[in-house]
Write a protein that binds this DNA or RNA. Structure first.
Lengths: 361, 361
DNA sequence: CTGTTAGCGCGTTCAG
DNA sequence: CTGAACGCGCTAACAG
């Protein structure tokens, strides 16, 4: 420990002594209770400031079983979608005097379990979770034992909890309609279908093709990216574009696949949209700034965060109604990266090889 | 609260009863003490599992004054630099049984103060901080009262604490040398000079120009971006490139200015590097993927995070030596976005106006 | 309005 | 090796 001239933190007892009142009185002032005479309150506040008193959260939590802290579990802090959601959650919680304890599981179930156990030890008052793998029984079991209100974000888990879902189907259908109208029939799709967002998008992809009378080519679907990050986007995109009949359009859904796929397209030196129509998802900044700007599916995750936090606060306030589900829309944002299929379109020649790409870190 | 059939959390007392031993025995098993007979240990562990017992962190913290939790303060979770640092910190702390409590101040001193007070209440065992404004007396005062080991990352604050610094000067000088060698004399610079990284970069920028016998044009320096985010990058870049004699090269240091500046360049439809040499910093992904790939100053922030965490753990272990400072290098990564000044170079014509841009959120 | 007191759950004595 | 008892700092309940 660095040498520190500070004496140990002041306790409520010391404040009481300094102010010449009892501990109970100090406690009431700290708790913002009414029924305190203005003069004593002022004296107590002065003493607190004097000793730079901060109430001991552990003692308070032990006594009240309330920690004024909410836990938030996300799979990846590198994903802008979650960063924005965190901002929304924090905004609402801060207004209500709660702290947010954010944890990134780095897409590992084991880390997720560790966090949930730590959360239980620390008696977090509630949880907002976006789990890595909604099919994980281990995670589900842990969640069931939490014993505090939980809000699940865009995952389908059997659990007595409120939910905030995003509407993925409509935006995906709009996208497919757009691409099909432009003449695309071979549409590559790189994503992770493990959880709700991916599952719905894959379903919408298939439905749209079938409705248009286009045979679904399984080889164009690379939907096994769960936990594999940007590298999956790069390798699958490279493979799609260089082996056999290449797609004329490519959808990379999920910010890391978006990035990874774009990397492969750059390495192959394909021109967007002339040689390939390209669509991303979940990374507005990248979509705006890549040259050319890229059509993408986007959603207001900050608002999702706000809604999740509000659902939780509502439970804290004693609401005991059955679980609710809120649905937030998503949008297809058209930019310059998609275009009509060229009549004479052929598979792009292989220009050069992609260096073996590993995830960003 | 959602109806929950779970009975309240098991206490150490219940575990003791279930295992037919005393509380003290359970505590010793939980604490991993030796000197426990194998049979009783097994019985206790079985009971703990049975009741899915998790020790009450509040009670433990109250008793021991150790929370096994480290706090981390960053200005912005949207900045990849901090996200990577967090990953590094978490990696090392997790290996040592510590949890990480990350807080983003959203570049607001007031939020920073709130966090530091909350940290004191929760008796976090140590802190890793990257403050918004190293000149804030309020923040400094709060930090001095923490009473726990602190590691400061790339900020100059008068404080009895360990430090991890990044070497900014060399990379910046290398960059300037490169640009000057390419014939650039009018080099625009958009950044925030409030804290250590910006200050050092600005100093290196001036020095390099002076050493090359080039007059420093203050109008080319837009170094007042602190707290203004990407919008500052966009508006200043637009202004630089459209008013008066435009620079032939532009450096946007800081991930948000990088993004914002690139946005303005795109809006003006300038071709990189033909019409403008462009250099970024701190956002490797964007630099790699923008068309064309962009020369940038980069640093291994994950390693910075690891080092910060190790310094802290060292203090926890009782190291009482005077404060140490560790320095991490940074690199200039050359990509295709810079080139020689065209002999016939003129200020680019104004092509169109930039829409009024607000920060990403 | 204010003072007093009894635990919250745990880790750490100190006796056995 | 095990059990019993104390108190960490605080809040709530009750007395005055």
């Amino acid at each position: 420990m660095t040498s520190n001239p500070i004496r140990p933190r002041a306790t409520i007892r010391e404040v009481a002594a300094a102010a010449g009142v009892s501990m109970g009185t100090v406690s009431r002032v700290a708790g913002g209770s009414t029924r305190i005479s203005e003069v004593t309150r002022a004296r107590v506040l002065a003493a607190m400031k004097d000793l730079s008193y901060q109430p001991n959260a552990a003692a308070r939590a032990m006594r009240t079983n309330i920690s004024k802290t909410v836990g938030m579990l996300v799979p990846d802090l590198g994903c802008p979608v979650f960063v924005r959601m965190i901002a929304g959650v924090k905004e609402v919680l801060a207004q209500n005097g709660y702290m947010l304890f954010t944890f990134s599981s780095e897409s590992e179930v084991s880390q997720e379990i560790t966090f949930l156990q730590a959360a239980r030890q620390r008696q977090l008052d509630g949880l907002i979770v976006s789990v890595v793998d909604e099919t994980s029984a281990e995670t589900a079991r842990e969640l069931q034992m939490m014993g505090v209100p939980i809000v699940v974000v865009d995952r389908e888990i059997k659990l007595d909890a409120d939910r905030v879902f995003v509407e993925h189907t409509q935006a995906m259908e709009a996208l497919m309609a757009q691409l099909i109208a432009m003449g695309h029939e071979r549409i590559g799709f790189v994503t992770a279908a493990l959880n709700r967002p991916g599952r719905l998008r894959v379903a919408a992809y298939r439905n749209a093709l079938q409705r248009a009378g286009i045979t679904v080519d399984p080889d164009l679907m690379r939907t096994d990216g769960a936990g594999r990050g940007a590298a999956y986007g790069t390798s699958e995109t490279y493979d799609l574009l260089t082996n056999g009949a290449a797609p004329t359009a490519l959808i990379a859904a999920g910010s890391d696949f978006f990035f990874g796929a774009l990397k492969a397209v750059r390495a192959l030196d394909l021109s967007i949209p002339d040689q390939l129509s390209f669509v991303g998802a979940d990374d507005t900044e990248l979509a705006e700034i890549a040259g050319p700007p890229i059509t993408a599916i986007e959603r207001d995750m900050r608002e999702v965060g706000r809604m999740a936090a509000k659902l939780l606060l509502d439970r804290f306030a004693g609401n005991a109604l059955p679980p609710r589900t809120i649905i937030q829309s998503s949008q297809l944002v058209l930019r310059k990266s998609i275009g009509k299929v060229q009549p004479t379109r052929r598979a792009p020649a292989i220009k050069k090889h992609v260096e073996q790409t590993t995830p960003a870190e």
